[in-house]
Simulated assay, not measured.
Amino acid sequence: MVELVYLLYVILSAIAIRIVYSCSWQEWLLRWLIVSTLPVIGWLFPLFWPKSWSRKKDDEALRQIFEFQDEPEVHQVGIYSRMEAEKETNVVSIEEALLVSGHADRRSVMIDVLKKDSIQYMDILQIAVGNEDTETSHYAVSAVMELKRKLMLALQELTVKYESNKTDPVVLREYVDVLQSYMKSGFLDEKTLRKHKFTYIMVLEHLITVSPEDEPAYLEKIQAELDVKKLIEAEQTALLYFHRYPQNEEAYLALLKVYFYMKSYKKMMGTLEQLKRSPLRLSNRALTLVRFWSEGA
């Protein structure tokens, strides 16, 4: 009797594994051997966990990969790259000074920030507002208020320029940059931020129309559309970018990112296959994505 029950369990398990998991022959055999050798308990092994359990970590890891940017290659490092590196170093040194220096040094650092374009130091300034030294805190508040004033003036000026001339790519790019800085400043509540984001998307659409060679505009628009959950529009923008720049790795990655947010596995795999067949020399980020999804598949 026991043997008959066990035999029935083994047969039903084999059928269930084949129907539920749709795996390869080798994987099916592995699963079947586990549940046959360890009746009932074998079903608790990770191989039988729902995909949603294991995909949460995969999703987070993949989001990080999408946001990751490669280090510039040696032949690409120029004045701009050095300036960006210096700017990042300066931000770190200012943050350290506010944490470990004496009050006099902190005040000196804040005075230096006030003399510079403080938008790049916004995160540091917001930390400095709560500094224990009241004078340092005062300087930080002054810098934040001055930055807010400048951004609002620039935004008002460019809004007027934009309304009177929506076909000038220089005006459109300046307006996009100011909107982006204002949205990242931390001055806006959620409702106002969302409203500015839709304006930002609209201006980027005009910029892409009058200046299709402005590649960053496609990526900026895609990200903004993903942020406000406009997934269909993000797909349309990504496809437009891809059709105009089929030899650009970023176009493939933008499509993959959109399909990842849309949870469209089929479209993602199709784009991945196109990328693998393309003659492009892939960056570390693209190679990581290709390996990640190829192994997953």
Score class of each variant (00 low, 15 high):
A14W: 08
E27D: 15
K267H: 09
I65H: 01
F66R: 10
I34S: 06
A61F: 09
Y9G: 06
S118G: 11
V10K: 15
E73T: 11
E273A: 14
T134V: 13
Y261G: 07
N284F: 14
M268K: 05
M83W: 06
R281C: 01
I201L: 02
I111N: 00
R285L: 08
D70Y: 02
P46Q: 04
I17L: 10
R291S: 12
H243Y: 04
S22C: 03
P72I: 03
F198N: 00
V77D: 04
L29Q: 15
L255N: 15
L114K: 00
W53V: 13
R31F: 13
P212M: 00
S93T: 13
K230Q: 08
T37Y: 10
V91S: 09
Q126L: 06
F68D: 13
K57Y: 15
Y175M: 05
M1E: 15
C23K: 10
D112P: 04
S24V: 14
E225L: 14
M110V: 03
V74M: 10
V258P: 14
E190K: 13
P169K: 13
S93V: 12
H196V: 00
T134D: 12
I41R: 02
V228F: 02
D214E: 11
A143T: 00
I124C: 07
E233G: 11
K229H: 04
H196D: 03
L289V: 04
P212C: 01
A217V: 01
D177Y: 03
E273V: 11
V40R: 00
T237R: 01
E174W: 07
F242W: 06
F45W: 02
L98W: 03
S164I: 02
K87H: 10
